[in-house]
């Protein structure tokens, strides 16, 4: 399934709302994405950082997985 810009905006909103009391986490997520955009980090690097940042938030991890290319996903502990 192809995700659209609206899906990305909606996901970013979800992250922002979740960490409304701790906006540093939302800003860190934006920083990770900026570093990916500027190619400072690659896809596995993003996966590594995001899995640490969203540890304990399996719904956010699953939402993020939807943006990953085939063959990549962050495992959610059961």
């Amino acid at each position: 399934q192809k995700l659209k810009v609206e899906d990305a905006l909606s996901y970013l909103d979800q992250v922002k709302i979740r960490f409304a009391n701790d906006p540093g986490i939302y800003n860190k997520f934006l920083d990770i994405m900026k570093e990916f955009k500027s190619q400072s980090i690659d896809t596995p690097g993003v996966i590594n950082r995001v899995s640490q940042l969203f540890h304990g938030h399996p719904d956010l991890v699953l939402g993020f997985n939807a943006f990953l290319p085939p063959g990549y996903r962050i495992e959610v502990p059961k």
């Binding site: 905006l9 800003n27 997520f29 934006l30 900026k34 993003v46 990953l68």
Partner: peptide
């Protein structure tokens, strides 16, 4: 680039960050 959807998310995040 091998991760077009992730690039799209990164682009949207960059715009969002610039606006806030």
């Amino acid at each position: 680039l091998p991760a077009p959807q992730l690039v799209m998310l990164a682009n949207v995040a960059a715009v969002t960050a610039a606006e806030s």
